[in-house]
Simulated scan of single mutants.
Amino acid sequence: MAPESMNGLPTAVLIVWVMCALGWGAVYLTLRRGLRGPARGPALFTHTLTPASTILLCSLVGFGSLQSVIVLTAEWWALLLVTGLRPERLVAAGGLGRLAAWAAAAAAGTLLAGHLVL
């Protein structure tokens, strides 16, 4: 049985952080493996900046860090699910249907995780 909290931090929050880090890493690896050409550098650069910019934005606003991490986690895992571990498919030919599926999966994941964690 999992502990209720770890040094005062709820276990559910730790799980969200770990899932977020794993999702970020999986998207990074698949982008690195799959993208070629001039789009590769900017895509990897912006993906690398996403966690830091999210933390900075939440600290400037003053709240919402956990909610933002939940949203990012849902988005990254939905991206991997919808594109079949090939994120470049999201903008490839016929990508509008995948984009809609990604948005729907990310929204559903965010709502589900929000209800479980918050």
Rank of each mutant, 00 (worst) to 15 (best):
R86V: 14
A92S: 15
V18G: 00
A103T: 09
T73A: 07
G23K: 07
A92M: 08
A2G: 01
G64K: 02
V16C: 00
G37L: 10
G95R: 04
A105H: 03
P87C: 10
A104T: 10
G95S: 05
A113V: 05
V117C: 00
A106G: 09
R36W: 10
L81F: 12
T30D: 14
L31E: 15
A39H: 14
L90S: 06
R89I: 08
V82E: 01
R36T: 15
T110L: 02
A103K: 12
W24Y: 13
L9Q: 00
P10F: 00
L80S: 06
V71Y: 06
A105W: 10
F63N: 07
L99Q: 13
A74C: 03
I70V: 08
R36Y: 12
P51K: 07
P42N: 07
G34I: 04
R40H: 11
A105V: 01
E4N: 01
A103H: 08
G97W: 11
L66Q: 07
V13L: 02
N7R: 03
L57V: 11
A93P: 04
L57I: 09
A52H: 06
L85I: 11
L111G: 02
L29H: 12
G94C: 02
L49A: 14
A106C: 03
F45W: 15
P87D: 08
A113M: 15
L118C: 03
G37M: 09
S68I: 02
S65L: 15
G23L: 05
A101Q: 10
L99Y: 08
A100C: 07
G25Q: 07
L29R: 13
L35T: 08
P42F: 08
W76K: 15
P3W: 06
L31P: 12
N7W: 04
L14I: 00
A101C: 08
G95H: 05
P10E: 02
L66V: 03
A74E: 02
A113G: 00
S68E: 01
R32A: 15
A52M: 11
P38E: 10
V69M: 05
W17P: 01
T110N: 04
L9D: 01
A101E: 09
A100M: 11
N7Q: 07
T48L: 15
W24C: 11
A12K: 08
A52Y: 11
L14Q: 00
T73K: 05
A2P: 13
I70K: 05
E4F: 01
E4R: 00
A26V: 06
L96D: 12
G64A: 01
A39M: 15
R33V: 06
A104K: 11
H115L: 15
L72I: 09
A21E: 06
V27C: 15
T73S: 07
G114E: 00
L118G: 13
A93E: 11
P51L: 07
P38Q: 08
P42Q: 07
A104R: 13
L29D: 11
L118T: 06
W76F: 14
S59I: 02
